[in-house]
């Protein structure tokens, strides 16, 4: 793939795609979206980078080791938050009973553990999309 137009447009558009993905993840508890949608958007931005610049370039930015670590870390982060609930209140993934700060209704910081879990899901889904795509296309 050596197309000047594709490469230039990709360079221009990728920061906006990733910013939108981060917005969707961080506002997952206030507006439509959430961890799965935002993670898919961020993963799609890296897939676009792979399609335009080739797999070696993307791996020099985000190696397979990093995506695997983030992927495992997402699940462990999720379980860790659930275990906090067990330690404090005896309820797995407890939210209000476990004493997470609730914040004000309708603002970004609200809902206790929900935004933390959404960030974990977003990282997990994004890294899964990237590493699935890389594993599938890198075989000749």
């Amino acid at each position: 793939m050596d197309d000047l137009i594709v490469k230039t447009v990709t360079k221009l558009i990728i920061p906006f795609i990733q910013l939108y993905g981060i917005f969707v993840i961080l506002h997952g508890h206030l507006s439509p979206g959430g961890g799965f949608a935002g993670g898919a958007i961020i993963g799609a931005s890296f897939i676009l980078l792979t399609l335009a610049f080739g797999i070696e370039y993307t791996k020099s930015i985000l190696s397979a080791k990093v995506t695997e670590r983030v992927e495992i870390g997402g699940v462990i982060w999720y379980i860790f938050i659930g275990l906090i609930g067990i330690a404090i209140s005896g309820v797995f993934l407890g939210n209000r009973v476990a004493g997470f700060p609730m914040g004000t209704f309708g603002s970004v910081i609200s809902g206790g553990m929900i935004s933390l879990i959404t960030i974990g899901i977003g990282l997990k889904v994004a890294s899964t999309m990237i590493s699935l795509f890389h594993h599938i296309i890198e075989e000749d």
Binding site: S31, L93, G106, I114, I121, T128
Partner: peptide, 30 residues
């Protein structure tokens, strides 16, 4: 849950254990 998005409340609070299984499905697929 003190959040505005009801679907988000269902998938990450009321049925959070279900979503944990969902992430496990993604992990199993990879």
């Amino acid at each position: 849950t003190n959040i505005t998005n009801i679907i988000s409340a269902i998938i990450t609070d009321y049925r959070a254990f279900d979503t944990l299984g969902e992430t496990t499905v993604l992990f199993t697929s990879i």
